[in-house]
Simulated assay, not measured.
Amino acid sequence: MAQKNHTASVLAFEKKLVLSDGYLYGTQWHDRAQVTPLTLQEKSVRGTISNRLKPAVKNDPAKLNAEVEKPNLQTVDTCALSVDQDTLKLHFTLKVLGGVHKPSACNNAMFQQSYAKVARNYSEREGFRELAKRYALNIANARALWRNRVGAESIEVVVRVLNEAHKQSWTFNAHDFNLRHFDNQNDQVDALATTIAETLASEDGYLLLDIACYAKVGLAQEVYPSEELVMDKGKGKKSKVLYSYGENRKAAMHSQKLGNAIRTIDTWYPAFNDPEHSAGPIAVEPYGAVTNLGRAFRTPKENQDFYTFFDDWANGKTLPTSNDEHYVMAVLVRGGVFGQSDK
């Protein structure tokens, strides 16, 4: 007789990877003693018309010329190193928490008992080693730099443990690690991963990491903070607004963007090994959503989404592969509200 699922209608998990915002500084590659917070600048430019035109306009030379004559005026935020700086420093902290086996909210005692059992079984058997290795590699490869990583001559990542009772530090050459896979073998990455895994597998442990990414991008080169989502830009306002803090508009990156980089570890979705449809490693999401591609790589129709796996697994059923278990636990580390409506 098939086992009936008992899914809680109120179910939430707190995130176990807690990122600060990232702060941007300018410095010199060979002398990093002096760092200067980077500030945003406004720039007004007169661009040309470059958007797609209606057929009536593009097929009429006179109308096309009239459109081209219209000035495309824009005011945008920009950020760049100074003329004597060639290196960007991105600085942030990452707190890792234990206690994944216990939901922060659950209104179904039977479900909570069943989930706690399989979660502890995973923790004892797998020890979060696979997830921790992937998180550690994403720290070491400086994925958190995002666009700032492209075209950088040299990238170095310095990681320090800030826990008073557990002082350690590691330095990584980001170019030693491939962004497309997690097969790298490195003793320092393994040491960092072990520290992360021990915390994730604990009942209530915590680990605080200080992370500094140095990217040699070139003298006075433009760098890229997070861009703000402005719902109503309005007429005459800036067409691009970058994220900043403080009165002097110091440049920064959103904690959400940094978190997305750290949890870009999902290579277990079905299309990953299909050269024509793979997006490489994607961020762990319940439906494998990649917004810039407008696609969900894990759909309920294919029984590859988080909820299909989680409802079976949390009620004691065995998942098809160990990779499916890794994926489910990675979503729980991400955190979220996963209850099922009673209606």
Results as ranks from 00 to 15, higher is better:
2 A>S: 11
5 N>R: 08
8 A>V: 06
10 V>D: 05
12 A>M: 13
14 E>H: 15
14 E>Y: 15
17 L>E: 12
25 Y>Q: 10
29 W>G: 12
29 W>S: 12
32 R>K: 13
36 T>L: 14
41 Q>H: 12
46 R>Y: 09
52 R>M: 11
53 L>F: 07
71 P>D: 05
80 A>R: 14
87 T>G: 11
87 T>E: 06
91 H>G: 09
93 T>K: 14
97 L>W: 15
98 G>R: 09
111 F>W: 00
114 S>A: 06
126 E>N: 15
127 G>C: 15
132 A>V: 11
133 K>I: 08
137 L>P: 10
138 N>M: 12
139 I>P: 02
143 R>V: 00
147 R>S: 14
148 N>L: 04
150 V>I: 04
151 G>I: 00
151 G>Q: 01
155 I>R: 04
164 E>K: 14
164 E>H: 13
169 S>K: 14
170 W>P: 03
175 H>P: 00
175 H>F: 05
177 F>I: 06
180 R>P: 04
183 D>Q: 06
183 D>H: 06
195 T>M: 13
196 I>H: 15
204 D>P: 13
213 C>V: 02
218 G>S: 03
225 P>C: 03
226 S>G: 05
234 G>E: 00
235 K>Q: 13
242 L>P: 08
242 L>G: 09
246 G>R: 10
247 E>V: 10
250 K>N: 10
255 S>T: 06
259 G>I: 06
263 R>L: 15
267 T>V: 11
269 Y>L: 07
271 A>E: 15
272 F>S: 02
272 F>P: 00
275 P>T: 07
287 Y>Q: 08
289 A>E: 08
296 A>T: 08
299 T>I: 06
301 K>Q: 07
301 K>W: 04
309 F>H: 02
310 F>H: 03
317 K>D: 12
321 T>D: 03
327 Y>W: 06
328 V>T: 11
333 V>Q: 10
341 S>K: 03
341 S>I: 04
342 D>K: 07
